[in-house]
Simulated assay, not measured.
Amino acid sequence: MYGWLQKHIKSRTTSSTQCGKGNIRENSAMPISILSTSSSSSSLLPLTPSEPRQLRNALNSELRWRQKYDVFVCHSSAQTDIEEAIRLVLFLEAVPRSLRCFLWHRDTCPGGAISTEFCQAMQDSHIRALLITPSFVQDDWCNYVMHQALAEGPMSNRMIPLLQNLPHAEYPQEMRFYYYIDLSKNPDHGFSLVYRTVYRYLENLTHNETKSGCDLSDSVCGGDAHKRVK
């Protein structure tokens, strides 16, 4: 009996370790055939000794947690676009990056109105990543989301265009004034750039939050000092 129990515990431990390596959420409803093709790019960003502390500060910022998602990923319903969006999300959600992402086919509520779900998710996200492909350009909902994002903050630095296999002539006119990340040649490098962009945004939130706290503290200390001088 003891030998059987040891063997059972060992098999469960091995199974849990393998699941952890996949960085896959339970009940994510992602096809296994798609998940098995995800890139092994989680080791692309080696951290320096000082970065883990900075990363924790950025991820623990109060301003960050006021939004439900860090990244809203907009993509078409084409199978290739879904696969690429899943690869991006798996990369961003993996430890130590641990970003919170929104995928419409995973995170929308059954029975909810598409426009309502999309608009609410955008409002609840810090960054909007648009996977712009030939299918994206032809998709009405993708264009709707793109225009909503542009209308809410055209100069807010909260939008990341991701270009993939799209001729320059077909690139949306509305996006011509934005820098984009080209995923066509090196998707892994592009994913790293997306992460770095989101991380800088969260870092700036943390910096502004700390600065505001220091300014308030200085104001209080200054007032007390002024009273003492009198």
Score class of each variant (00 low, 15 high):
68 K>S: 10
125 S>L: 09
45 L>V: 09
114 I>T: 08
102 F>R: 06
86 I>G: 00
192 S>Q: 12
56 R>Y: 12
75 H>E: 07
99 L>T: 04
128 R>S: 12
101 C>G: 01
95 V>R: 11
157 N>W: 05
180 Y>T: 07
23 N>Y: 11
61 S>H: 01
179 Y>I: 08
169 A>F: 09
77 S>I: 09
203 E>G: 02
63 L>C: 01
227 K>F: 13
57 N>C: 10
107 D>A: 06
49 P>R: 03
136 F>Y: 15
105 H>G: 05
90 L>C: 06
88 L>A: 03
223 G>H: 07
131 L>D: 03
4 W>T: 13
143 N>A: 06
103 L>M: 14
93 E>C: 06
224 D>N: 06
215 D>I: 09
144 Y>L: 09
69 Y>D: 08
222 G>Y: 05
49 P>N: 09
138 Q>W: 03
150 L>V: 05
73 V>N: 06
42 S>M: 10
1 M>A: 11
80 T>V: 12
26 E>I: 07
206 T>R: 10
38 S>H: 10
57 N>H: 11
13 T>I: 15
172 P>H: 07
92 L>M: 05
117 E>W: 00
119 C>A: 14
215 D>L: 08
188 D>H: 04
196 R>Q: 15
139 D>A: 10
23 N>E: 15
172 P>W: 09
6 Q>K: 11
90 L>W: 04
24 I>H: 05
220 V>E: 12
228 R>D: 11
13 T>G: 03
46 P>T: 12
86 I>E: 11
61 S>G: 14
94 A>M: 03
182 D>P: 01
19 C>D: 14
142 C>H: 02
105 H>T: 09
84 E>P: 00
58 A>V: 02
33 S>P: 00
224 D>A: 10
54 Q>S: 13
204 N>R: 09
32 I>W: 11
2 Y>K: 14
46 P>E: 10
140 D>R: 09
130 L>W: 01
159 M>P: 00
34 I>Y: 08
141 W>S: 04
159 M>E: 06
187 P>Y: 07
122 M>S: 04
62 E>Y: 06
37 T>F: 02
223 G>W: 09
181 I>K: 04
99 L>F: 02
98 S>P: 01
200 R>K: 08
92 L>A: 03
61 S>D: 06
138 Q>S: 15
66 R>Q: 15
82 I>T: 03
223 G>R: 04
33 S>N: 14
228 R>P: 00
177 F>T: 14
152 E>P: 03
200 R>W: 03
145 V>C: 07
33 S>I: 08
95 V>I: 08
169 A>W: 09
88 L>I: 03
141 W>A: 05
123 Q>E: 14
43 S>K: 12
15 S>M: 13
